[in-house]
């Protein structure tokens, strides 16, 4: 294939090759004295963007100091991994339903965001939490309504 590799090419290769190696070493030497770009994670915490998709979270609305969930179950139905379980309860007056318990199994969640998109009451959002490692499988199961109570 490459037949014309004579003495001239041989010498040329040695010189251009050495030059390229020296240039390459210059590049890395320059980088040796540049500031580092990594984040020292447990010591420094990265700031998540507002659109970051953590697990889902119920929004605390100001008008009723609670969520707007009506336990319609669309989120549970649309979830590809069957992560969500919603349990509703009738209000005292009996005319409206509201979400009483809202369990997600985060260990199975693929963070697609379909539940947030589909919610007719727009009461779901993504949390900004990213430290979502658990010691037990059951730690991944969380009740959003309870978390909402704790946030109040």
């Amino acid at each position: 294939m490459n037949t014309s590799y004579g003495f001239k090419e041989y010498v040329k290769d040695i010189f251009t090759g050495s030059k390229s190696l020296v240039i390459g070493m210059g590049v890395t030497l320059k980088r040796l004295f540049q500031p580092i770009v990594t984040v020292q994670y447990p010591r420094q915490k990265p700031i998540m963007t507002p659109h970051f998709r953590g697990h889902i979270e119920a929004i605390l609305f100001d008008d009723n100091k609670s969520h707007h969930c009506v336990a319609c179950g669309l989120c549970a139905r649309t979830c590809p991994s069957h992560v969500i379980k919603v349990q509703g309860e009738k209000t005292k007056a009996g005319d409206k339903k509201y979400g009483k318990k809202y369990f997600i199994d985060f260990t199975k969640c693929s963070l697609c965001g379909l539940c947030v998109d589909v919610c007719p009451e727009k009461t779901l959002k993504f949390s900004n939490e990213y430290e979502l490692a658990f010691f037990s499988r059951w730690d991944g199961v969380m009740d959003l309504m309870q978390r909402l109570e704790e946030r109040k």
Binding site: T16, S18, S20, L21, I23, G24, V27, T28
Partner: peptide, 10 residues
């Protein structure tokens, strides 16, 4: 940088 470090490297 990529040219210096990779493409031209013998």
């Amino acid at each position: 940088l990529y040219k210096d470090l990779i493409t031209d490297n013998i």
